[in-house]
Every structure is written in structure tokens, then in C-alpha cells.
Amino acid sequence: MRIRIKKVRDDIPTPSYAYKGDSGYDLIAGEDKVIEPGQTVKIPTGLAFEIAEGYELQVRPRSGVTSKTKLRVQLGTVDSNFRGEVSVIVDNVTEVKRKTLADKFRDWVAKRRGQFDHEGDIHPEGTYVVEKGTRIAQGVIAPVVQARFLSVPKGVELDVTSRGESGFGSSGVKSKEGE
């Protein structure tokens, strides 16, 4: 399958698969982003995709980012008719530490003395700086099936199954021996 891309930002590499057999290719940050604890940000990738009708681009987390940081990439869907720059939604799930009066005073003193980080501001502990070029998520091209929905008349029930209306956690948590 061929997918045309448009580079919306300078110096963005063409996506590629790291290994033969990979289902996902890396999506990289198209610009620097600071993500403080508790924040959700959109990280632009610098790329727009021409996805064929009948397919979607799924934005998924990279296991290395999830296992080694407190950053959580949200699953995303890029429909075949979207032609804008693709962004990745990222949450910083670091627990937000409430500042004590002493912390606020220390920050005030640091600012007065000109002790700033690289952006001229003091960021709370647990802040991540995602630099342009960082492999932040992965993209997977997948087929899409569109359903046709049929509303049943009042009084008509849906087919009965062994599960019925049992929902969240209905099958238990532990695995069953011998199955």
C-alpha cells in the first residue's frame, strides 16, 4: 500500500518501519513541547497523510514511552478524509504535587536571583520536555468497516446471549485453571 504524505514542518523525516514485520511506524514530535504534571498537550507530527478510503491511521502509544515515563499517549483515529497535520495527544500522569508555602517562597527567591531553566521559567518536578524529533507514538494503518445501524421497534429485544447485560468485570479478574 502506498500512502502519500505532506511534510508540514521542516526537517521531518519520512515515516518508516524499524523492522520487517512491524505493524507500526514511528510518529515523531514536530516541535518541542513542555508537559507539566497533570497536563494534556497536542504534539504536532509535522506530517499530513493521504489515507485511502476504507482505511484509517491509528495513533498508538510506544511501549518504551509508556514503560519508562509518566507520559501516556492517547489512542487516536485519523480518518481517510482528514488532510491536516496529524497531532498526538499526550497526558503527563505524574501526580501533581501541591506546593507548600515554603515551595512557593523558594520559587520566588529563585526567580528573583535569576535562576531559571532553559525557557526562563521554573517547571514543577515531573515535567517532561519532549524535543522535536522524539519518537513519541506509532502509527498503524488499518482497514475500516462501516456498519449500517438498524433500530429495533419498542418491545423488540436484542438476541439473547450467555453474557446478557453483564458488563465491566463480569468475567472476573483471575484466569481459570485448565482453560
Rank of each mutant, 00 (worst) to 15 (best):
133 G>S: 06
77 T>W: 05
146 Q>C: 03
99 K>A: 14
67 S>V: 15
92 N>K: 04
21 G>D: 12
12 I>M: 12
122 I>F: 02
56 E>F: 05
39 Q>V: 12
124 P>E: 15
77 T>Y: 05
10 D>K: 14
103 D>E: 07
6 K>G: 12
140 V>R: 03
146 Q>D: 07
45 T>K: 00
11 D>G: 03
14 T>Q: 05
28 I>Y: 03
70 K>C: 11
103 D>M: 11
79 D>F: 12
48 A>H: 00
18 A>K: 10
122 I>H: 11
60 R>S: 03
90 V>M: 08
88 V>P: 01
157 E>I: 01
157 E>A: 09
171 S>W: 11
167 G>W: 00
76 G>T: 02
49 F>E: 00
55 Y>A: 05
32 D>I: 11
106 R>C: 04
167 G>T: 01
71 L>V: 14
16 S>H: 10
124 P>C: 09
169 G>I: 11
63 S>L: 05
135 R>D: 08
94 T>Q: 08
91 D>E: 15
110 A>D: 15
143 P>S: 10
36 E>H: 05
102 A>K: 15
158 L>N: 13
50 E>V: 11
62 R>H: 07
74 Q>S: 15
76 G>Y: 04
113 R>E: 13
146 Q>V: 10
11 D>H: 12
95 E>A: 13
178 G>K: 12
75 L>R: 00
141 I>M: 03
48 A>L: 02
81 N>Y: 15
136 I>M: 06
153 P>I: 10
124 P>H: 09
128 Y>D: 11
82 F>E: 04
91 D>S: 01
160 V>F: 07
42 K>F: 15
163 R>A: 00
16 S>V: 10
163 R>L: 03
134 T>W: 09
156 V>H: 10
6 K>E: 11
169 G>Y: 02
35 I>L: 09
87 S>E: 11
78 V>A: 05
41 V>A: 04
20 K>N: 07
152 V>D: 04
